[in-house]
Design a protein around this nucleic acid. Structure first.
Lengths: 128, 128
DNA sequence: ATTTTAGTTTACGTTTACGTAAAAGTCAAT
DNA sequence: ATTGACTTTTACGTAAACGTAAACTAAAAT
């Protein structure tokens, strides 16, 4: 397995190294360290980072994203823990579903407005 | 036509009056005023506010929302203006479409993770 | 070997999107 | 008419999410 440096990840996702360190500060990502203290990121870390950025694009706060990431933490082995995790996951899934529906409605509206504008342009061109 | 006061709108959308005034400060909404200076909001203003809040839920900044709202400004009558507006609208529509696809992928992943957790819970219960 | 480049921590600065408080005017009801 | 609820502007405060700079160390390149 090989690793990414912080600047490599920063470049790949077009964010600053500060941003990545900040996510670590907030407990969202936990790279290993070399003897000298440099951060090394695995593929898994990269996937987590990708998840964070996607969450951000949807307007989730880092706090919410933190909670969602813990869903992927496979260390929840007890039955009570599993049940809690599932319940939380179902809740989040519902939220995501609602957002999708909401967005699709927005899309519809934008399309109808665009159609309206195209029609107006059409009429302008006819009377030219 | 009748009007809403600022606190009526605030209550309807469960936000503060400060928030509404802030949106006005940023140029997103423009209520008329009574002789004494109180703000009055029309149905149209209410619709704009609704749009703002929806945009926020999707993680758009107030600046982006401002741009999108100007799409609804019917005062773009020149041909060049129309063309620019349509181009901008198409761009935003594309962004929204991409977000929807992105969200649907997230949904898929969450569902598969949930399925995995449910399976584990199942196995735990079998060995009880 | 020594520049150059990249990494680290610490810490203060900044922007966005409001919260909150003060001081004063206005509206609605008793 | 006066109380109480509502509104206005002005202004300072704040949390989240980083930006930026300093001071230093390690790695890579010449």
């Amino acid at each position: 397995m090989n690793y990414y440096t912080i600047s490599q990840l920063a470049e790949q996702f077009d964010i600053s190294t500060r941003t990545i360190r900040y996510y670590e500060e907030r407990g969202l990502i936990s790279p290993i360290r070399t003897d000298s203290g440099q951060r090394l990121y695995t593929k898994k870390d990269r996937a987590v980072l990708k998840l964070i950025l996607r969450g951000k694009r949807f307007g989730f706060s880092l706090e919410e994203i933190h909670e969602m990431i813990s869903l992927f933490d496979n260390d929840r082995t007890g039955r009570k823990q599993l049940e809690k995790t599932i319940a939380y996951g179902e809740q989040k899934l519902k939220e995501v579903t609602e957002r999708i529906e909401d967005l699709m409605q927005l899309k519809q509206e934008m399309e109808s407005i665009l159609a309206d504008f195209r029609e107006r342009l059409q009429k302008l061109e006819e009377t030219e």
